[in-house]
Write a protein that binds this DNA or RNA. Structure first.
Lengths: 226, 226
DNA sequence: TCCGGACAAAGTGTATACGAAGAACAATTC
DNA sequence: GAATTGTTCTTCGTATACACTTTGTCCGGA
């Protein structure tokens, strides 16, 4: 994995630390670095083809985001999401994503709704094609888009971070939970379009409950809480 | 301000980056560094008596926490909380702190309640003594303690970060909002002790509404949204 | 006076090297 | 076998260097 990441990183010219952070997040979410795995600075620096400084800066942020745990003088390890973590995360998500749905319903413009519908269409199509990776991607995009439409930057950034962790947990369990969630998505977008905040909240809640149930099922497979 | 901070930093032996981060947060919240003020790495390094590296790492985290804004190749400036920020923050806090109150009500042990009551007592006493700084401190401690009792680390860490920003906004407006909030606090602790989640949520909501109103009033004074 | 561009200064982004100190683990000693 | 001692691996922090951007200044020309 050292080479492909290094190549990708050379291309753009965002600060290296941000590229490293992005690559690190992705690597963790994708399971390239497994929970509990030790991440020494030298190793990461070599994997990403950069010096230790950008790595260190990326690690601190990754710690703040909950992807790694840093033990002073002992270094960083990939965090280990436990089943307790899942419960806690969904409890918070329930509060935040329902708020996002409400705000989105109250504030969405016609263009916003159109962009959501477009994602829905693409999702249906991708589902038809059995393109699970694409479906998962559209799923994310849809959620993130709703957060953005909510127009509350705090809400958006916090919920986004939580959402990344949800994705991580699903990936670890190797499940996609693709097909059955689109019906819920349609409900949600309909509710947002209606402008009815209560209804949007309810739709979001239904969706979350289903997602939460799936997460548990998925976790049963056991990627280890330890 | 360089000297006193430097002295404090030398004492403990947490990683320097964490000490710097703490000192930086405090300096920003206390208004030692004002919104919009430029924070060059060299300047901070000198203020805190450390080299650039720990400063840089602290800055990245401070950015993630929303205290500073970093523009690539242009450096960091202290963030400028706008009145929109206040609205947005309280909308999120309303969702999260009510959840915290509910969870705390459902999970608090007798010892937990006792520790809250102790804080309440100290608060009443400090109010009597007109020791506003101490009152503010106890206020924070109480809130943070409730978050901790909620037993949800995600909730706790997110709400804590938001709470710091609320403090910041109050400090910028130079208001303390000390006396009148203790009655609400007592209601809240009573509700937590009762174990009634709904009641605790309601109490937290009342408290938040009052705090939010005060924040607006405070902001009217105008520390500038720009 | 105002504009535009050359030039200098300041500051970030990144790499590298080095020393000190802590943690983990193995080897050795009693 | 338990305690002690070394050794090694790393992190943590400092210092230094340098390329590259951004910013600010100064100057000449319209």
């Amino acid at each position: 994995m050292a080479e492909d990441l290094r190549d990708k990183l050379g291309a753009q010219h965002l600060p290296l630390r941000d590229q490293v952070l992005g690559a690190l997040r992705t690597a963790i979410i994708d399971g390239d670095y497994l929970p509990g795995e030790r991440l020494t600075e030298d190793r990461l620096a070599e994997d990403f083809g950069v010096s230790r400084n950008p790595v260190r800066e990326a690690l601190r942020v990754a710690e703040a985001e909950g992807f790694v745990v840093i033990l002073p003088r002992r270094g960083a390890v990939v965090a280990s999401p436990s089943s307790g973590t899942i419960t806690d995360m969904f409890a918070v998500r329930e509060r935040l994503e329902t708020l996002a749905a409400r705000l989105a319903a109250e504030r969405a413009t016609a263009a916003d709704v159109a962009s959501l519908r477009a994602l829905l269409d693409q999702g249906r199509e991708a589902t038809h094609r059995q393109d699970l990776a694409r479906v998962a991607e559209l799923n994310s995009t849809l959620h993130l888009r709703i957060l953005q439409i909510s127009g509350n930057p705090w809400l958006s950034s916090i919920a986004k971070s939580l959402y990344l962790h949800v994705q991580w947990i699903f990936r670890l369990g190797a499940a996609e939970r693709a097909p059955h969630s689109w019906a819920e998505h349609i409900q949600l977008v309909d509710a947002i379009e209606s402008g009815d905040g209560d209804r949007a909240e309810r739709a979001a809640l239904d969706h979350l409950d289903a997602a939460s149930a799936a997460a548990y099922e998925n976790a049963e497979g056991g990627y280890g809480a330890h």
